[in-house]
Design a protein around this nucleic acid. Structure first.
Lengths: 208, 208, 208, 208
DNA sequence: CATGAATGAGTGTTCATTCAT
DNA sequence: TATGAATGAACACTCATTCAT
């Protein structure tokens, strides 16, 4: 399963020149999208930024949506490979949750401009809304498994459905990240990590 | 002072006919916005829906933004006056939180189309982003006061900052509402109310 | 012969109130035309300035052209009655010419804004171009008679046709006035009077 | 530096086709402007006349003003290179002045429609008013030098300031040309040339 | 006579997309 | 493959004019 969904519209170029041009467009698109936002980005800005002619665009992409999907796929790759900072004791559930939240928030910080973009596009285009949900789902499911495991081991409360709780708590962290890095709430990063972690742990009644 | 901020754009009409026409436009705008979304809504659709000429629009509003602001102000009024379903025991903190969450989720359900619209517009227009944050802030602050009060009374944990916790938990509920009513997650309403309430209560260590 | 030509479109109001309203519109029109120019003046600006409703305009005038014609007629009256500053010796042809030029230039100075307006309108509307020419013609003809007289008396050269010379010399003074008062050439007023007078006199070979 | 002042608005096209299209637009604009006047000329008329689509206009010009400036620059070039009809004896000042006046009047006759257009635009648009004044200034200055020279040589009277006299007399000729070719005064061309020349010469007291 | 709301024709401008070279 | 000129649909906005009250 890829991030592009069914968006791979045109076959990839075979010649070296073609590959180069496509990449130039892709890089340029990312620059322009992050600078101007999705709606305000004009294809001509992208081609100009890429240093290619307007017509060349259509050799590689069918339109704005398609190149955005391609950028999304590319950035998505980056985002899925977080730099692991420190090893955590896998047997310490709190440490694992803290590390997970920290990784998410760091990823968000690093890609804040892009996350805002994703947000913009999601609110406009149904297709990207679905894509975004799919991406989030991976995170949600991993957390759901973790919660289920903790419940099985009697560490977390069984009062809540693991999947629903995961969705809600994952959403909580995601929304907090949005508030800090897009809306610009003036919160200290470390305090934020600690607070979401504590709320998460408490919410599952793991504190004792 | 209302939700419009500095959006009071044209003096309100004085004659009965003028007021009637302005209202027709306002109702029509709401219908069209909720049906087509902000971006796809054309002024001509609004005037047609209202049964007035294209030119008449400008007698009352300066453009799409302005009429949207006016619709927002109107709907905002509605949203701020929830029908109170049942009295809750003000001395039972859990009951109060449950009632608050239920009221929010019911408001969101009732105005789902509009909330989605607000979401769309916020991601597009800086001005509405601010307006939306202001609105959210009211909710956040009320909850912050409540949390602080519970902390003072030793009912809730003092491990977290009341304002930050309020922001995060309020965001959690808001995001959950978005997931259910806009994204369309297939969650049972009552279960959702119970789950967010439980997670909230646990998060503040109020369970015991 | 009036300045309005065939522009008297609507019969004058009979009631006192009607006369008052018409005058308010006329004054307002003059203010707005001189402030904004003919093209940029909107009827609504005129009615607003006059403190009457938009609809009332059509009770008295058929449109922008018509009210401009009315303003023109009014101002034309003013312009034709110059304040005579000093008596000149009618037997001294140079003094007469100087007085005539001075009177013209003073009139132009006093009505500079209006003359510019007239200029604007003339270049736009054929009808006003004719009107303006008619007005100028009065000046030209008076000068032509004067020149003819001087020629008859042997004071001015008979090398030139009196009517043609009058047109050209009158045009010279008119253009000089335009250059000073509309274009804004930085010329001393008295020097200008003297210079045009001297050139005029010399041109007719009257110096000796 | 040319007549366009700071009006060089879009980079000139590089390809042959681009140059051709731009020229088609330019020619069409001139036709339409001279036919309909500046105000009544619609861009769509220009593109239709040029045989290109409405959108193509904006590939080369930013709007009506800009294409007019371009037309003006082009026609200005033409106008500045008069066909010299006959050599005049440079030592005969009267012959030189006559030749200059004739050249001016012939230029005006040849470009009457355009001069009227320039007149219209000048009365509407500040920017073109300045441009027109600049153009006139060149003519004025040349004449001022000539007058100064004649004064130095004792051929012309020193009673008048050479620059002011030049402005006024140049304006006289210009206004006469306007009266004949735009207003339509029924004057014989040769008589006009002779009369303005004689008045000019007399005005400077050069007759003896 | 006065009001002011309602009308609707008219046009400039943008920009994704195509296609001849 | 690359170019960049050409296309044309689409829509907001203004304002003179009308007319019911």
């Amino acid at each position: 399963m890829g991030l592009t969904g069914d968006t791979q519209q045109r076959e990839l170029p075979t010649t070296a020149r073609g590959i180069r041009t496509r990449n130039k467009l892709l890089q340029a698109a990312r620059v322009v999208f992050e600078r101007d936002g999705y709606l305000d980005a004009r294809l001509i800005d992208i081609t100009t930024e890429a240093g290619v002619s307007a017509g060349s665009f259509y050799t590689y992409f069918d339109g704005k949506e398609e190149i955005f999907a391609a950028v999304l796929a590319e950035v998505g790759e980056e985002m899925l490979h977080p730099e692991v900072h420190d090893m955590v004791d896998a047997d310490d559930p709190v440490a694992v949750i803290r590390a997970s939240n920290r990784a998410y928030l760091e990823m968000y910080r690093k890609h804040a401009k892009f996350m805002q973009l994703l947000h913009e596009v999601s609110s406009i285009d149904e297709r990207f809304r679905k894509l975004r949900r799919q991406r989030a789902q991976a995170f949600v499911e991993r957390n759901a498994r973790s919660i289920q495991d903790l419940q099985n081991r009697g560490v977390a409360t069984s009062d809540v459905d693991s999947r629903l709780a995961s969705s809600i708590l994952s959403g909580m962290v995601s929304r907090a990240a949005y508030s800090k890095f897009v809306v610009g709430e003036d919160w200290d990063f470390e305090t934020l990590v600690e607070t979401v972690t504590r709320l998460w742990i408490n919410a599952l009644d793991m504190s004792t």
